[in-house]
Design a protein around this nucleic acid. Sequence first.
DNA 1: CAGTGGGCCTGAGTGC
DNA 2: TGCACTCAGGCCCACT
Length: 271
Amino acid sequence: MPELPEVEVTRRGIASVLQGLRIEAVVLGKPLRWPLGIEPQALAGRTVAEVQRRGKYLLLVLDAGMLLVHLGMSGSLRWRPGPPPPGPHDHFDLVTAQGTLRLHDPRRFGAVVYVQGLQDPRARKLLGRLGAEPLSEGFLFEDWYAALRQSRQAIKPLLLSGRVVVGAGNIYACEALFRAGIRPTTPAARIGPVRARRLYDALRAVLGEAVDCGGTTLRNFSGAGGDAGHFQEYAQVYGREGQPCRTCGSPVRMLRQGQRSSYYCPHCQRA
DNA sequence: CAGTGGGCCTGAGTGC
DNA sequence: TGCACTCAGGCCCACT
């Protein structure tokens, strides 16, 4: 599940190759989550200026307009020389003379959306309510702590919502809470400054380390070069229900919050 | 307004 | 072996 690290790994893999390239054609497969929002042929002739990231969105900034790319649950982008024939799960090709950027997404929760700029209503709708970038210098502990005090939600769904801080999906939210020693069910407002600081540090550490690992490959994520990530080898609780905690040996527990599984160690995460 | 739960989609895994 | 069923989950949206 592409979370912030997987998207950032993808961005790093395509940014330098795409920069300055001219789009020859855009080829669509089956419908993705949202319509592209422009006729594909209207993109031919434009060039890619740079590739940015905001939360779990990739921003392909063109000389005019930009493409917002979301990998959803099962999406991955790959850069390949030449125009290989599309498979049944390839739903977006950005074709250049030097190679093709391809979105492969079996579940089609992903999307590519054209907007004129960040002020485009569609961009504002998708990006406008996103919280802070956890790895940026603009993510301040004071703001984080203040936001926690203001929320009546349990900390885990608050992390997943992306409203305070973006980028953590189920895996990294579970892992960050484990490192901070905080239960997924703890109301955000009941987390004091010391524990809030621990979670703030843990979130940044987990996401940063995952980027360095090339992301997490559980089923089929791979970077733009096709290489798998290996952060999953370092997971302490995620997906480990019933197995001994690597710190204290207690069996890892799983509970449901909303429709999501939360994994935690009842001993290391006391409250 | 904040918070909760439904639904999108398909491959992998499970049980009979 | 094969079929029916459940699960995985990011995120928008309808609803409370």
